[in-house]
Design a protein around this nucleic acid. Structure first.
Length: 153
DNA sequence: GCCAACGTTGGC
DNA sequence: GCCAACGTTGGC
């Protein structure tokens, strides 16, 4: 059982969007960075992830999702019309994957980036590090629980 | 293999 | 809109 942080721009895909999908389950596609891809591949069904809103009016953790299944090939990479198209990907050699995520809970208030920075115990969080722009990050159980608690108040 | 140029991310 | 930081590309 591992814990993760997944970034999304809420204008594109927010936790509210996810909650409205059939089965409250959506696919997290379009990751085109190898390190982030490796994290997707390491995910197991039942893992929990913080849903992080980036480049938004209110930046921070908006809620929690469950990983609903293991990584599968991201075929948007093969679709020339998709914004996620990768000209180097072929059906035989497609490096990209997606995972299905299920809505778990939305925080009453977003736990903002500014709050995270001020919270004891989160000093080592990757998302707080300067220049860190990895869209899928591991978080520790301790970090996850601290943030879950703050979001549940 | 080096590294400059370029494109993207993401907070401010 | 700005710009620092980072990842990728491509010429050599």
């Amino acid at each position: 059982m591992q814990y993760w942080l997944m970034k999304s721009e809420p204008d594109v895909f927010s936790i509210d969007h996810l909650a409205k999908l059939p089965g409250k389950t959506g696919s997290w596609e379009g990751v085109r960075n190898y390190q982030a891809r490796n994290h997707l591949q390491a995910m197991k069904k039942g893992d929990l992830a913080l849903f992080y809103h980036s480049s938004a009016d209110i930046i921070g953790v908006a809620g929690i999702v469950t990983i609903a299944g293991e990584a599968e090939p991201d075929t948007f990479a093969l679709d020339k019309k998709s914004i996620y198209h990768d000209p180097k990907a072929t059906r035989e050699k497609n490096p990209w994957v997606f995972v299905r995520v299920k809505y778990q809970k939305k925080f009453k208030e977003v736990v903002t980036l500014a709050t995270l920075r001020q919270t004891a115990g989160l000093e080592d969080m990757l998302v707080l590090k300067k220049g860190m722009r990895l869209s899928i990050q591991p978080v520790t159980e301790k970090e996850f629980k601290i943030i879950e608690k703050m979001g549940s108040k």
